[in-house]
Simulated scan of single mutants.
Amino acid sequence: MITLVPLSGFLGSGKTTTLISAAVAMQRTGRRVAVVTNDAGPAGLVDTDLARAGLDHVAEVTGGCYCHHPDELAAHVARLADSGGIDTVLVEAAGNCFDLRPALVPLRRRLGDRVVIAPQTVVVDPLRLAAFAGAADLSGREYELAYVFGRQLAAADLLAVNKTDLIGAEQTAKLTARLAADHPQATVLPYSAVSGAGIDELVRAWGRDVATPEPDYELDHARYVDAEARLAWANLAFGVDAVDDTFDASVWGRAVLRHLSEWSAATGYFVGHAKVAVRTRAGLAKLSVTESGAAPRADRSAARPVERGSATVNVRIACPPSVLDDAVLAAIAAADAVGRARSDVPPPASFRSTQPLPPPSLARTAGADAVLR
Score class of each variant (00 low, 15 high):
I167M: 04
A130N: 06
S139V: 13
G239Q: 13
A181Q: 14
E214G: 13
F149H: 15
A242E: 06
E214D: 12
T187N: 00
A131H: 14
Q152L: 00
D241K: 14
R141E: 13
Y191H: 07
V188K: 01
S195Y: 06
A229M: 09
A234Y: 01
A160M: 03
A211Q: 10
R223P: 08
L219F: 11
D200R: 04
R151W: 02
G198Q: 15
D209I: 13
S195N: 11
H183R: 00
A154L: 08
A135F: 11
Q185C: 01
L189P: 08
D137C: 08
V210F: 04
Q171I: 02
V188M: 07
F238N: 11
V240S: 12
L231V: 09
L236N: 03
K163M: 09
A180I: 09
L158R: 08
G207E: 12
G134T: 10
E142Y: 02
E144K: 12
E214S: 15
D216N: 10
Y191V: 02
A146C: 06
P126Y: 11
L145N: 03
L153Y: 01
A193F: 11
A155I: 00
D220F: 06
D241E: 13
T212A: 00
A186E: 12
D137F: 07
A222L: 14
A155L: 05
L175K: 06
A193Y: 02
Y191N: 04
R151S: 03
F238R: 12
A180V: 12
A177D: 14
R204N: 10
A135E: 10
G198N: 07
R128P: 01
A169Y: 04
E228N: 15
V210K: 01
A173H: 09
P126H: 13
G140I: 07
L153K: 05
I199S: 02
A181C: 07
H183A: 02
R223K: 14
A234K: 03
P184T: 03
F149D: 05
D157L: 02
Q152A: 01
T212P: 00
L231N: 04
F149Y: 15
Q185D: 08
E142R: 15
G239N: 11
P213S: 02
A155V: 05
D216V: 09
Y224L: 15
R128Q: 09
A135T: 07
R128W: 06
L153T: 02
V161A: 00
Y147C: 11
K163E: 04
N162P: 12
A154E: 15
L159T: 12
D200M: 04
A133R: 14
P215A: 03
Q171V: 01
R178A: 11
G150V: 03
V161G: 01
